[in-house]
Write a protein that binds this DNA or RNA. Structure first.
Length: 379
RNA sequence: GGAGGGGUAGCGAAGUGGCCAAACGCAGAUGACUGUAAAUCAUUUCCCAUCGGGUUCGGCAGUUCAAAUCUGUCCCCCUCCA
């Protein structure tokens, strides 16, 4: 058991079963459920660490594959680790590179030993294995690191999934065996697609091992909303309650609420920052595409109910202008807002759980935003 | 006054008898984006309409089955020479 990292389950909502807890990390304690913005290349695009502190982000992500290529894990280590390198003092998490193997799948070849993959920038051959991924992550030095898994495509055959999950389990053991930084928590990743028995089997096998938490993988890969929820239903009941559960790659607000309802503690997603850069905002009035002409002379704040720096200081007309002119400040201000929207959502979620009214909160939220199965995201 | 070049959709710019409502770029409008190859991608922009139809390529008049493309003429712009 890791002495620098542990999960403290503080309260289970009597109305819903959702969990409120505290994650203790070497870089501070954070409350869960929480949302973690993604900073692939040791930066949450367009935001400074000061922006992140103001947003109260807690944990932020970075990425093994991308930092491996640039600047290289040795340089990050030389700089004193990821925290020093990028000057972020809060807790950090690195993904293992497993997802890049999936998203760059045009160039990959998966074997028992690991994955042959082509450098997406220059085509040069690369090889990533469970050992290599953990070795890189040990050098990067994030508080929480991920096991190297295979993220299978959806849909895929039962045979493919069985082979893949067994390999992911073997890879998990290999990663665990070489992990040598006691300050870093290591999470196992549950796969199995929407095969209930395979998900369950994966949970049973991985929870036998000495992981500090468990991630739910294989979601947000093109499946529909109902399927994703089914995957959660096939996974969460088989995970131990004394360890954190992390739903990887999920960040639309309806999915966060559904995840929390099922017992998820941690979420990460590029969605708020990516769509912000593309001019789409999550607001108390639903989705706003700031580029739209109707905002040309709208001198009101982006979201009247929001307390973020952007909403307190700038108008929709100005944000639209920045977007149209492709100014970096626009991307920054819009990213600030979207992240704050999700941070505020998780704050309200935690409060509702502690007050044993999370189910009401979730239902009210869905009603307010007109969310349903057909229109799940609503923005 | 003389010689030459040019006027194409919001802008720039292809096209020089039928495959042209007219490439392409920009600009505009709209949508998408879920462990970030993402300042990306998709749709759309003469008019009306579901199919489909109606008006266009400086103006006018011609030639032709057929013209943005050929002829005449007029208007405007640019360069050079006087």
């Amino acid at each position: 058991m890791n002495k620098d990292f542990w999960y403290e389950l503080k309260h289970v909502c009597k109305q819903s079963g959702a969990r409120y807890g505290i994650l203790h990390t070497p870089h501070g304690d954070v409350e869960t459920p929480m949302f973690m913005p993604v900073g692939t290349l040791a930066t949450v695009k367009y935001l400074s660490p000061e922006d992140l502190y103001a947003l109260e982000t807690g944990v932020i992500l970075s990425n093994t594959y991308h930092l491996w290529l640039r600047p290289g894990e040795d340089i990050v280590k030389e700089a004193g680790g990821l925290h020093n390198f990028m000057n972020y003092k809060g807790p950090m998490l690195t993904d293992s590179g497993g997802f890049q193997v999936f998203s760059l799948s045009d160039f990959r070849k998966i074997t028992e030993e690991g994955v042959k993959i082509k450098n997406h920038r220059d085509g040069s051959p690369l090889f990533l294995s469970p050992e290599k991924s953990i070795e890189i992550q040990n050098k990067l030095g994030a508080d929480i690191i991920m096991s190297f898994d295979e993220c299978p495509p959806y849909p895929c055959t039962r045979e493919y999934m069985e082979n893949s999950v067994n390999r992911t389990i073997r890879w998990a053991k290999r990663g665990l065996a070489v992990h040598n930084n006691p300050k870093q928590a290591l999470f196992g990743i549950i796969q199995g697609g929407d095969f209930e028995d395979i998900r369950k089997y994966c949970c049973e096998e991985l929870t036998k091992l000495d992981f500090d938490g468990f991630s739910i993988g294989g979601t947000s890969v093109g499946e529909d909303k109902e399927t994703m929820l089914r995957m959660l239903d096939y996974t969460l009941p088989y995970l131990p309650s004394d360890k954190p559960r992390y739903l990887m790659g999920v960040g639309s607000y309806d999915s966060i609420l559904e995840g929390v309802l099922r017992g998820v503690d941690m979420f990460d997603c590029v969605l708020p920052t990516r769509i912000a850069r593309h001019g789409a905002l999550m607001t108390s009035e639903g989705r706003v595409n700031i580029r739209d002409k109707k905002y040309e002379r709208d001198f009101s704040p982006l979201d009247k109910e929001c307390d973020c720096y952007t909403c307190k200081n700038y108008t929709r007309a100005y944000l639209r202008h920045l977007y149209k002119c492709e100014e970096g400040l626009g991307k920054r201000l819009l990213s600030i807002h979207n992240i704050r929207f999700l941070i505020n959502l998780t704050k309200e979620i935690r409060k509702a759980i502690q007050e044993d009214r999370f189910l009401d909160f979730k239902n009210e939220f869905f009603e307010k935003y007109g969310l349903n199965v057909k229109n799940p995201r609503g923005f």
